[in-house]
């Protein structure tokens, strides 16, 4: 063995050099595809999306005073204009079956209440981590933007969240709509509003399923064009919105659109 060692050593060095070269080459490929720069990915691996989703549900529980399971998949977080100071709900409370369950019912809270206006900021850490851990969770991105803009007066932060969301989910029409709404309705920036409304309309994939959203997008595209004095473009947008309505479908927006078309024709 000791006689063969001088012959084996150069062979081993050569093998090591080949291996290190191929590892180095593949390492860069791996780094690119799995984004090793992301420290969270390095720590948590692919579990980070699951943790992110759990944290999003946690934010929902926070909205309900720490009571879990009051809404499915955080839907209450997204609902608009339904924030109440306090709301008790007897429904959903099960009658305790034995003394252990009775004690648990008295220790834990099962009532239904929403966070008070001054406390709504408490859900932000969980929404932040949810979007950081799972940047493809569009629901979390939209929810973060909604709360920041509508309830916490942080419109610029909402724009940052949506812009980051759009970078991570290119071509997602709901994020584009969120940006368009903020630019046009809140910041009164019709140029950016028009751009994002047009982009969102372009990116709606399922035109039938999202028909009502599409009508809204066309309507606000028309509104943004109107405020930019682009009357013919606005008229086209209103006409597109009207064309999406079924013949027998009647609602307030349809009436409004028809009036706008009449005005511009």
């Amino acid at each position: 063995m000791s006689k063969r060692l001088p012959m084996l050593l150069p062979a081993l060095f050569f093998l090591a050099a080949v291996l290190s070269y191929s590892i180095e080459k593949n390492f860069h490929k791996v780094e690119f595809s799995f984004n090793l720069d992301n420290s969270l990915y390095r720590i948590l691996g692919s579990a980070k999306e699951a943790i992110g989703d759990t944290l999003f549900l946690k934010a929902d529980a926070y909205l309900h005073g720490g009571v879990e399971g009051k809404s499915d998949s955080g839907e209450d977080l997204e609902k608009e204009g339904k924030i109440e100071e306090r709301e008790h709900s007897a429904s959903g409370l099960k009658t305790a079956s034995d003394w252990i369950a009775q004690v648990n019912d008295r220790v834990k809270v099962h009532e239904h209440r929403h966070l008070a206006k001054t406390q709504q900021k408490e859900i932000l850490p969980f929404i932040y981590w949810a979007t950081e851990l799972d940047p493809h969770n569009v629901e979390a991105v939209l929810t973060a933007a909604y709360w920041l803009d509508r309830h916490l007066g942080q419109t610029d932060s909402a724009v940052e969240v949506l812009a980051a969301g759009l970078r991570n989910n290119p071509g997602h029409w709901e994020i584009e709509q969120g940006l368009a709404d903020i630019y046009f309705k809140r910041k009164k920036d019709a140029i950016l509003g028009e751009r994002f409304y047009a982009k969102a309309i372009e990116d709606v994939k399922d035109k039938e399923k999202d028909r009502h959203s599409l009508i809204e997008l066309y309507y606000f595209l028309g509104e943004s064009r109107l405020s930019l004095k682009k009357k013919s473009g606005a008229l086209r947008a209103y006409q597109m919105a009207l064309a999406l309505y079924a013949a027998n479908e009647e609602n307030g927006l349809k009436v409004q659109i028809m009036e706008k078309i009449k005005e511009l024709s």
Binding site: Y62, K121, E122, L124, P125, F126, Y128, A144, L148, L152, Q154, S157, E160, V161
Partner: peptide
């Protein structure tokens, strides 16, 4: 020391 979206004083987390 963490601050989320420039909104301070969140303590429950």
């Amino acid at each position: 020391s963490l601050n989320f979206y420039h909104v301070g004083n969140a303590v429950r987390y």
